[in-house]
Design a binder for these strands. Structure first.
Lengths: 116, 116
DNA sequence: AGTAGTACCTTGTAAACCTAGGTATATTAT
DNA sequence: ATAATATACCTAGGTTTACAAGGTACTACT
């Protein structure tokens, strides 16, 4: 088993970091307005500078919905496949604000640690 | 299966967020000077405002060492159990800088998303 | 002798991203 | 017509990793 390159390690780390951030980002996007899964993937890809896999987003949306943090409804399109539009709920907005608060706290901690 | 409370969901999320952050934080601490596992746990606990479990840190230190991002040496204490002191390597410092760069980028992305 | 504090480690479980598939509809090119 | 592309959804299985819960060993204090 060889030692990985820095590039490989960085990519692996970025993937791990996303695990926690994705919840926050999805709720933040939905807080700005309704959207559907396929569009969400491209929005997040731009924000994070990395393409999000569908196998990541769709299960996440299901989990958020089962936790009642977001709600969903199908909309038949005049052209193209139907879309499942998601909205943030009050509980979701509540959690989002607490996440942002915690995020700011952690960010301060890192700032102090890097620039003491 | 009942819906979780906001507190439970937040705690769960914070745990996930740590998955990515811990690598960065451990390397950042070691970049400021050598340290040993037990002391590292209390330092991180203060920074993150949450007590880190030993079962989290010790395996992480082993992984970082096997990736040659940190190095370790035992030191016999005049009093008390021996300590395993860790140092950051050049490769570790290199990765840390790239992590911080990516972190800043992601942080900007979140800022723009929350305050457009 | 017993308790508490320091310091290390391992095993097993749960969570969640991602790869690699799959389905279905509409448009465009051949 | 029909093949290819784009849009849009989903799932199963592998992999990683934080954490709980357990363990070992040394020292100091009562």
């Amino acid at each position: 088993m060889s030692v990985s390159t820095t590039e490989e390690l960085l990519a692996k780390w970025e993937r791990q970091l996303r695990k926690g951030l994705l919840h926050l980002l999805v709720l933040a996007v939905l807080d700005k307005g309704e959207t559907y899964g396929y569009e969400l993937i491209s929005k997040l890809g731009k924000q994070l500078g990395a393409d999000m896999a569908e196998g990541t987003i769709y299960p996440l949306l299901s989990r958020l919905q089962s936790e009642k943090l977001i709600s969903a409804e199908w909309q038949i399109m005049e052209s193209g496949p139907a879309r499942k539009y998601y909205h943030i709920t009050d509980a979701g907005r509540d959690l989002l604000n607490q996440m942002l608060s915690h995020w700011a706290h952690v960010n301060d901690g890192i700032e102090r640690m890097v620039h003491p």
